[in-house]
Design a protein around this nucleic acid. Structure first.
Length: 605
RNA sequence: GGUCCCGUAGCUCAGCUGGAUAGAGCAGCAGCCUUCUAAGCUGCCGGUCGUUGGUUCGACUCCAACCGGGAUCGCCA
């Protein structure tokens, strides 16, 4: 059961609906002598080809009304028009009652929306931890990490806008055999190489990880050629044995190994920091596996004592077969932990460190769906009240046009290269349009950075997170159509208008109602009106794509308005000011929606 | 084999708790800049919503089976 982040009635859309529901109930009582449950009423947006704002489908009520669809809708429509002030008029098409909401209502809404940030919900008193990165320190970040990071960061901002207090964390897998592999290779073949301007620390460590793999494979081939079985060869390779020996020394706190480990990890962190900075994300706290990998053992033993787990062949197991899952080892026969054990301990530790924590969200790929299902179930079995507030924000893998990304085959897209590429492309496009001749080099650099990153982030966020997606490099640097830069462009347009108009803080002219709202204005107003509900939906579903797609709908509608309706060129000052107010509200909502996606918007472009 | 996810236009994706002739973008075609930023706007072209059944007044949406794609089920991390 996920919480509603704000009371429903404080969202404009629901507030409007709540004016209609009691009236509908009265209508049914008066017209058909029927007590209509509020739940039975659903509203939908009127399709653009018909006149109206809200549509009620009367098909479900035909039994109650005992009349044909048209007559039923007509009767209800007449009742509503007479009884509800915001209902301006209505029309009936087949079984659909299309209701037109009064201009006065929309103008009132705009005025209210202008006076505050309609996408910032009041605090709900909840603290939510979002884990949205979990890199290994033996290789650089790639495209898959980018989806993870942008997704989790966006969700954290969406939740923040929805009134939650957020703790952003990453967990760094800084120990284990994989790091030792890089360390062994560097010690043997590195000749003291250190990070440089042309070789970031994470790239350097990754280079030796690859080098290890190369030697390892060569040794395996050699052993097989010498008559060993494949399995023997894989386990008996000298360089692998060396890495395992290094891991043992690390666990025994060998000073030399620890020093090398510290040194190479610090290179890696410096590299990650640069990547994160360019990506525009930050963390409130880092969890290091080297400090948490022993956690969980005592909790498992405690669970064993209480009969939550059981012992078999000297190992500790949990039986999840009653829940349709499998049995799972939690402590090996030699008493050591498995990954699950650590995760149990780490979750417990986090709730101890943050006593007021309401929810914990793990942003991790869907290949770990099963792992988290088991983890959450175990914590529930251990009796933690917060176990129900754990959430796996699962996302699909990113494929390339050439197929799956495989590090072994060198088909991974490096995160730094990717960001560099989109920014370069943004620059090329910007120079081509040459609208920015008065910009300094510095200003241009900042702008193109903003645009390129918007292209990349929006491309990754507009797709439903849980779905596997295709990364098309050409499409990701596209600046037209359903893209981040298109949204930025529209924002820049609004700013251009508002600059020309000067800052307007007050309505100087009353809207007399003498002129009706234009269809283009209405469309934009309705999309603005829906935004809080969309944000709430995104927050509830932990899904940025709703906000992303709605932002696109909004700016598309605004562009259409902009292209056909004069604003500054409008001679009637009341109309001009109204359209500027509308533009200003579109700008504010667009900026906030993009903020929720971790994307900045420019004043000009 | 068990469990889970996905299958909508040539390509990439939207389609809310079932509701009106299934929507965008890209690609293709045709228009629109002496006037508020053409990174834009307008129109055209393009779909038996994987298949077959079922539930319903009504199914892209719910259920079942099947086909196709993917993930996962270690005393690995």
């Amino acid at each position: 059961m996920r919480p509603h982040y704000i009371p429903l009635h404080s969202m404009f859309q629901d507030r409007l609906h709540s004016q209609l529901v009691p009236a509908l109930q009265l209508a049914f009582k008066a017209l058909f002598g029927h007590d209509l449950a509020a739940k039975a009423i659903t509203f939908q947006s009127t399709r653009p080809e018909f006149e109206g704002d809200i549509t009620i489908n009367v098909f479900p009520f035909l039994k109650v009304s005992g009349k044909a669809p048209e007559q039923t809708a007509q009767a209800i429509g007449e009742f509503l028009q007479k009884e509800v002030p915001v209902v301006a008029r209505f029309n009936v098409v087949k079984g659909f009652l299309n209701i037109q909401i009064s201009d006065a209502y929309w103008l009132g809404f705009l005025r209210e929306a202008r006076s505050k940030d309609i996408l910032q919900f009041p605090s709900n008193g909840r603290k939510v931890m979002v884990e949205y990165a979990s890199p290994n320190t033996n290789k650089p970040l790639h495209l898959g990490h980018m989806r993870n990071i942008f997704l989790g960061y966006s969700v954290s901002r969406i939740l923040e806008s929805a009134g939650n207090d957020i703790v952003r964390v990453q967990v760094i897998n800084d120990r284990g055999i994989h790091i030792c592999k890089s360390m062994v290779a560097w010690r043997k073949f590195g000749n003291g190489e250190t990070p440089s301007a042309t070789m970031k620390g994470d790239k350097l460590v990754g280079k030796y990880y690859v080098e290890f793999d190369r030697i390892h494979k060569k040794e395996i081939d050699g052993l097989i050629a010498a008559g060993r079985s494949k399995e023997e060869a894989e386990k008996g390779s000298p360089i692998l044995l060396e890495a395992q020996e290094m891991l043992r020394k690390w666990e025994a706190n060998d000073p030399e190994v620890r020093a090398l480990w510290e040194r190479m990890n610090s290179w890696c962190y410096a590299g990650f920091d640069a990547t994160y900075e360019r990506a525009g994300v930050h963390f409130d706290k880092n969890y290091y596996e080297s400090q948490t990998y022993l956690l969980g053992k005592n909790d498992v033993l405690e669970g064993l004592k209480r009969g939550v787990f059981y012992e078999k062949d000297g190992a500790v197991w949990v039986d999840n077969t009653p829940e349709g899952l499998d049995e799972k080892v939690l402590l090996r026969r030699d008493g050591t932990s498995v990954y699950m054990t650590q995760d149990i301990g780490t979750a417990i530790k986090r709730f101890e460190e943050y006593p007021g924590l309401s929810q914990l969200i793990y942003t991790v790929g869907n290949e770990q769906d099963y792992h988290f299902k088991v983890l959450f179930l175990i914590l529930k079995k251990l009796g933690f009240a917060w176990a129900g507030e754990l959430h796996h924000l699962s996302y699909g893998m990113v494929d390339l046009p050439s197929g799956k990304m495989k590090s072994r085959e060198g088909t991974v897209v490096d995160a730094d290269d990717l960001m560099e590429e989109v920014v370069t492309e943004a620059r090329a496009a910007g120079e081509r349009l040459s609208k920015l001749d008065d910009f300094s080099e510095q200003e241009k650099t900042e702008l193109f950075e903003m645009i390129g990153m918007a292209a990349l982030k929006y491309y990754l966020l507009k797709v439903d997170a849980k779905k596997r997606m295709l990364f098309d490099p050409a499409a990701s640097i596209d600046l037209q159509g359903h893209t981040g830069p298109f949204i930025q462009y529209t924002y820049a347009r609004t700013q251009s208008l508002l600059r020309k108009a000067g800052i307007m803080d007050v309505w100087q002219h009353e809207h007399s109602g003498a002129w009706p709202l234009l269809p283009e204005e209405r469309t934009v107003l309705k999309l603005l009106h829906q935004f809080p509900a969309v944000l709430n939906e995104s927050a509830t579903k932990l899904d940025p794509s709703s906000v992303a797609n709605h932002a696109y709908e909004l700016v598309k509608a605004y562009n259409s308005f902009y292209q056909t309706v004069p604003v500054m060129k409008e001679e009637d000052p009341a109309k001009r000011e109204f359209r500027l107010e509308l533009s200003s509200c579109v700008a504010a909502v667009t900026r906030k929606a993009m903020w929720c996606l971790g994307i900045e918007v420019p004043e000009r472009m």
